[in-house]
Write a protein that binds this DNA or RNA. Structure first.
Lengths: 201, 201
DNA sequence: GTCTATACTGTGATAGAC
DNA sequence: GTCTATCACAGTATAGAC
């Protein structure tokens, strides 16, 4: 028992319970819908009484907030784990970033709703949670800057383009490929518009 | 009193009350948020007790459904009232349609959320209400067809492009112009991509 | 320190008197 | 058609057992 003080073991246990609650919350969100998530459902799945959740989270919104941070952290990890883009092939950089974001968005509707849409009535992410999303966007901005795309308007345009395709896919053809098939073409259209060199150059 | 049977007067009165309730619902949605709309707020504004609303609407979702139909009907009317597009100027047709839709979307967040996003937990429009939205989209398709844009993928692309800009505007800069300024440029990018003739031709 | 038991407030919805 | 009374269930909060 030496070497592992109680305080640390307790801290670990608490973190494990928190993760368990969050995992249950994701399950409920995926089966019932993000906004239909109830603390009773979550508590049932974890094997607790609803009020016990308040030992680990201050409120229902605090659970949403932790889920928000988890989701953006997942995307952050995926983006970092991505093979380093080759700035000499700008179109490939664009396509890779767009595909990563698009597939991540389309893979999980409640996750996307929580990350990017205002689906939960009064929910606003905490500054700490929001910071994660800013970090991801900063990463993308840096990758775009590496291929010469630095103007805010140019960044905004491609963000809206990819986001619009993801929205349309989720709203009109969930689980399908109708807009997914248009992604590369849309990115090329954008690259042409900016006169980015093609791979052959 | 001759010439106006009671049944018709009663019908008119009912329709007037319905409109009054819907107007109150829009007010509540704009002040409190679409999802935070409560029957009590609506009833208060109309001067009724909450259960009395059930005389005019079967459920809260039925109110949302009527609002959904109203919103799409507004857009339909605006589109029809638009000056007839000149197919010999395809870029002008594109820009006009895009601007009409974009400005309409951005002008009223709860209306846009109800029309195009899944903001209300279990809400799905009724077939009759949904038919109005289909009619608007059919109108746009016809206008696009008149300038030679007939392939589904091409239509999907411009729909996603304009929708993505509207989403970004509402989500990240509500009331501002950051993405609004990009609209004409985005449409031109799309027109270039399809090799549409420029106005000079 | 946790969890259980219980209660409070606000919501959509229904039943029945008038 | 409208009202009063009431229900079921949500999120939330506190007291007390262990």
């Amino acid at each position: 028992m030496v070497g592992t003080p109680n305080s640390i073991r307790i801290e670990r246990r608490r973190a494990a319970v928190r993760d368990e609650i969050l995992a249950a919350a994701w399950e409920v969100a995926r089966s019932r819908g993000l906004a239909q998530l109830t603390l009773r459902d979550v508590a049932d799945r974890v094997g607790m009484q609803p009020p016990s959740l308040y030992t680990h989270f201050d409120s229902k919104h605090a659970i949403y907030d932790a889920m928000f941070a988890q989701a953006w952290t997942q995307l952050l990890d995926l983006t970092v784990a991505q093979p380093a883009p080759d700035p000499s092939r700008p179109r490939q950089v664009l396509r890779a970033d767009a595909r990563l974001f698009f597939d991540f968005a389309v893979a999980d509707l409640p996750r996307y709703q929580l990350m990017n849409q205002r689906t939960i009535p009064g929910f606003e992410p905490s500054p700490e949670a929001y910071a994660v999303s800013v970090r991801v966007m900063t990463l993308y901005r840096e990758q775009l800057a590496a291929i010469g795309i630095t103007r805010d308007e140019d960044v905004d345009l491609v963000v809206a383009l990819v986001g619009g395709l993801a929205d349309a896919q989720l709203a009109n053809d969930p689980g399908g490929e109708r807009w997914s098939r248009l992604l590369d073409r849309a990115v090329d259209m954008y690259a042409d518009h900016l006169n980015l060199p093609t791979e052959e150059n």
